[in-house]
Simulated scan of single mutants.
Amino acid sequence: MRIERRYTSAGQSPYAAIPFRSAISEIKNPDGSVVFRLEGIEVPEAWSQVASDVLAQKYFRKAGVPAHMKKVEENDVPSFLWRSIADEAALAELPEGERYGSEISSKQVFDRLAGCWTYWGWKGGYFTSEEDAAAFHDELRFMLATQRVAPNSPQWFNTGLHWAYGIDGPSQGHFYVDFKTGKLVKSKSSYEHPQPHACFIQGVQDDLV
């Protein structure tokens, strides 16, 4: 698959031409008491407060994001698509309470979504060349940041957590199609092959009652 760049340039950050701002997101009770507050989040300047709140309150990963990470080398994958895991040695140098935390920037979310999708695409042999994979990666990040594209909610929640941060957990009973064999396989991991589906279509004979 060939990917033509429309918004980005090779060798330049896809965020280079996009202004970002620091914002605060909070939820208050009717009596004014604060239920949720997150300061210093980074969002595109053009985003509304509602969009910023949805990202911060719903889609930021709130726990388990390592303060220090290292890449996992794969000989058959371009280095810019190598996944990351916690750097245990570097984390050991930090106070225990500072080793893991939350996503705080929209760029982290855009990077993990687009990075994971591109990684899966590379593994599946979708791209004609490494340059096409890089273009896909950059174009998607730009389009996410400028609200030209947006996935469904479970993608924001789950996709890329294993690829970007090494977050994982036991299988939750879902299945995925193995791209090598074309067969349905029960996942052994909750995040390496997540279940990012928003709806489940019932059989035509079901009336949902």
Rank of each mutant, 00 (worst) to 15 (best):
Q195W: 09
Y100T: 00
W117D: 03
V72N: 13
D206Q: 15
L38T: 06
R141N: 05
W163E: 11
A150S: 14
A89M: 11
V185P: 04
N29L: 09
V185H: 12
S79V: 01
V149C: 06
P19L: 01
G169F: 09
S79L: 00
L113N: 03
S52I: 04
I41H: 04
A67S: 14
P19H: 04
T128H: 05
E42H: 08
Q195C: 14
L161E: 14
I27Q: 12
R37T: 05
P196R: 04
I104R: 09
S129C: 03
P196H: 15
P170F: 08
V204G: 03
S33R: 11
M69D: 10
D178C: 07
R141V: 02
I41A: 12
D178T: 12
T146M: 04
G32T: 07
D168N: 08
G11L: 01
A134Q: 13
N152F: 15
K58H: 13
P151S: 12
T146V: 06
S13F: 03
F175M: 08
S189A: 15
V34R: 10
E98L: 05
Q195S: 15
E103I: 05
F142I: 01
G121Q: 12
A46R: 06
P154D: 05
P78T: 05
Q108N: 05
A145P: 00
I167G: 06
D132W: 03
D76R: 06
R21K: 13
D206N: 13
A134G: 02
F20E: 04
A134C: 02
I201W: 15
G203Y: 10
V77D: 01
F200V: 00
D168W: 02
I167C: 01
N152C: 07
D168F: 06
P66N: 07
W120C: 09
K107E: 10
P196C: 12
P196D: 11
R99S: 02
K28I: 10
Q147C: 00
F157K: 07
A114H: 07
P19D: 01
F200M: 04
D76Y: 04
R2S: 01
L144T: 03
P19T: 06
A17L: 03
I18H: 00
E93D: 08
V72A: 05
Q195M: 10
S52D: 14
W47F: 04
P170M: 03
Q205N: 08
K188C: 15
E192I: 10
